[in-house]
């Protein structure tokens, strides 16, 4: 758990980078710091592992005040991932991943086992990649290594500063999915900086929307999309926030609320989709395939119905727009 208690940071007398920020990242949850560039999100993140100092207030990490801890000890207990992956070019992948355990004086056997476990998580072959150097890997692979390196000494807390920002959109999505998969297994307490709204909606249990060092809103993604508390928040998420919100819902949700269409065996050559697929991807599939309908399959692979653009629109209206307009009227 990371608690920010009225945290303020000033540069000099006049510039306030972080202004009385107060929120908590619950155990095992991901909180995304979201905001335009210059809003102070990276500064706030770097205050947790004391790469930046705190002017006022305190940050409590798992019950301990960060101020009272030795910064070196503190940092070794916190995983840290940055955008440009920060891999050390002079070290092999194995040396890179094992650097914190090495600093902590782990035994060779422990390191070896841990490395193999982490590489399994990353989906890269330990034998194949261990002896390679960072430049021999693709950008996506380097970033995977950057992530598992932060996990190496099994820190309870992770700080991630736009970790997937430098990747191209297709690879980014894939790595986001993989990371969520990993998170389901390791359940770390994560503070995650992003300027990408879609990424924030996808990754976050809760979002902190920052502007000029102040919290504009601290809420779950769906709450924030449905009930933006301020003009700035609704502007920031944009007019298409209803469609953005679709990524929080699955075909399954739609089926429960309005039901799927019947399977029409006479239509040949239709695409299929899993029932757990999110609605945003489903919609883009419907639009891009120029297919009138897509067959929905359950996990067993049985056809359980079809989905059309009309159905998505109907659901959008009921579930999301309804909430949005209600909040605007009220």
């Amino acid at each position: 758990m990371i608690s920010f208690n009225h945290v303020t940071k000033k540069f000099g007398e006049n510039i306030t980078a972080i202004d009385d920020v107060d929120f908590t990242v619950e155990e095992g949850k991901i909180v995304v710091l979201l905001g335009p560039s210059g809003c102070g999100k990276t500064t706030l993140l770097r205050m947790v592992n004391r790469l930046e100092s705190i002017t006022e207030g305190e940050i409590i990490i798992n019950g301990e005040n960060s101020k009272d801890m030795d910064p070196i000890e503190l940092r070794r207990k916190i995983g840290y991932v940055i955008q440009s992956n920060g891999l050390f070019p002079n070290m092999t992948i194995e040396e890179n991943v094992m650097i914190v355990p090495d600093l902590l004086g782990w035994s060779k056997k422990d390191k070896r086992e841990r490395f193999e476990y982490l590489m399994k998580l990353s989906g890269l072959d330990a034998k194949d990649y261990g002896k390679r150097y960072p430049h021999e890997l693709s950008g996506g692979q380097q970033q995977r290594i950057g992530v598992v390196r932060a996990l190496a000494a099994d820190p309870p807390v992770m700080l991630m500063d736009e970790p997937f920002g430098a990747l191209d959109p297709i690879i980014r999505e894939k790595i986001q999915d993989e990371f969520l998969q990993i998170q389901r297994e390791v359940k770390k307490t994560i503070l995650f900086v992003s300027h990408d709204i879609d990424e924030a909606i996808k990754m976050a249990d809760k979002i902190v929307l920052l502007r000029d060092g102040k919290i504009m809103q601290f809420d779950t993604p769906s709450e924030m999309l449905a009930h933006p508390k301020q003009e700035f928040v609704s502007q920031f998420f944009g007019k298409d926030r209803a469609i953005k919100g679709l990524s929080l819902h699955t075909v399954e949700n739609l089926r429960e609320v309005i039901g799927l269409g019947p399977v029409d065996d006479s239509v040949q050559d239709t695409k299929t989709i899993n029932v757990h697929q999110d609605l945003r991807n489903t919609l883009s599939m419907l639009l891009n395939q120029e297919a009138d309908q897509v067959i929905v399959k359950d996990d067993a692979g049985e056809n359980i119905g079809t989905i059309t653009i009309d159905l998505v629109q109907k659901y959008l209206h009921f579930e999301i727009k309804g909430k949005v307009s209600a909040s605007q009227e009220g």
Binding site: P71, I72, Y80, G86, F88, M91
Partner: peptide, 26 residues
């Protein structure tokens, strides 16, 4: 690359460790 030093610091490397393991080899 300053990011590399930042990463090293953030991982809890001491100044002499950063010097001998990162700065001098690179």
């Amino acid at each position: 690359d300053k990011n590399m030093i930042d990463a090293a610091k953030g991982m809890g490397m001491k100044p002499h460790q950063i010097l001998f393991r990162i700065e001098l080899p690179n």
